[in-house]
């Protein structure tokens, strides 16, 4: 399978990754045997990026992935996420550190390759989102501290939320990666939309991640297909 370089991380990953989220469900609710068989087959196919998050099955996805990794001991790239709850605003560093420690415990790892901010990003930081300023001034320094401590290798964002705020965070060139929504129903991260097109306009965000040297991970490429 074709491999591409994950931006400035220099890490080589297969063009198809393994999503351990609730949409597919295998790594959340599948049997242990099916999970191990699927991961083993993915490895044989050349897949080497595995993506999980604390909220996938309320920790179940991380636990299950950790169990399978412990059994198979593959040389892979593991990414998880951190969602900072609204009530933890103002103490982002503590929230990020606590979330990562819990993730490492469930995964049974001393370090993850990639930690991604799992909040919607906005200009104003309204409820249910985190402001671009807070991302740059609070979250990024906290992630950088974890990197210096050797608990993560790289950090990034899930690029969902308000487009100008996402552009601002990407253009700051302090992030390694972004998860980007890019699919047949909404191609706006990669090209201009026709006027009046019925979808959120990401404003060619992929050109900005590229200029910033960021690696990108396509999400919802099937727009939630069964």
């Amino acid at each position: 399978m074709e491999r591409r370089i994950l931006g400035k991380t220099g890490v080589e990953v297969a063009v198809l990754g393994f999503g351990c989220g609730a949409v597919g469900g295998l790594m959340v609710r599948g049997t242990a045997a099916d999970q191990e068989r699927a991961v083993a087959r993915a490895l044989a196919l050349g897949i080497n990026y595995f993506d999980t998050a604390p909220i996938y099955g309320d920790g179940e996805s991380e636990k299950n992935l950790g169990r399978v990794l412990k059994t198979l001991r593959p040389n892979v790239v593991v990414g998880t996420k951190v969602r900072i709850p609204d009530e933890a605003r103002g103490r982002a560093a503590q929230a990020v550190t606590a979330s990562l420690e819990a993730s490492l415990g469930r995964l049974g790892l001393e370090r993850v390759d990639l930690l991604q901010l799992h909040n919607l990003i906005s200009a104003d930081g309204r409820a249910g989102t985190i402001g671009a300023t807070a991302v740059l001034d609070q979250v990024v320094p906290a992630l950088d501290t974890l990197r210096r401590q050797g608990k993560i290798r790289f950090f990034g964002i899930t690029a969902l939320g308000d487009t100008p705020a996402l552009h601002r965070v990407i253009d700051a060139r302090v992030l390694d990666t972004a998860q980007v929504c890019f699919n047949l129903l909404n191609p706006s991260a990669g090209m201009p939309l026709p006027a009046g097109y019925p979808a959120h306009d990401f404003g060619e965000l992929l050109a900005r991640t590229r200029a910033a040297g960021m690696g990108t991970i396509g999400i919802r490429v099937l727009a939630g297909a069964p």
């Binding site: 074709e2 591409r4 370089i5 994950l6 931006g7 990953v13 297969a14 063009v15 198809l16 990754g17 393994f18 999503g19 351990c20 989220g21 609730a22 949409v23 597919g24 469900g25 295998l26 790594m27 599948g30 699927a38 990026y49 993506d51 998860q179 980007v180 890019f182 699919n183 047949l184 191609p187 991260a189 990669g190 992929l206 050109a207 991640t209 590229r210 690696g215 990108t216 991970i217 396509g218 999400i219 490429v221 099937l222 727009a223 297909a225």
Partner: peptide, 19 residues
């Protein structure tokens, strides 16, 4: 859907969730 996502040179890898 998968092959479209790979048309953009700025896209490194695409995630699919499996059932």
């Amino acid at each position: 859907g998968i092959r479209f996502a790979l048309t953009n040179e700025g896209m490194t890898t695409v995630l699919v969730g499996y059932s």
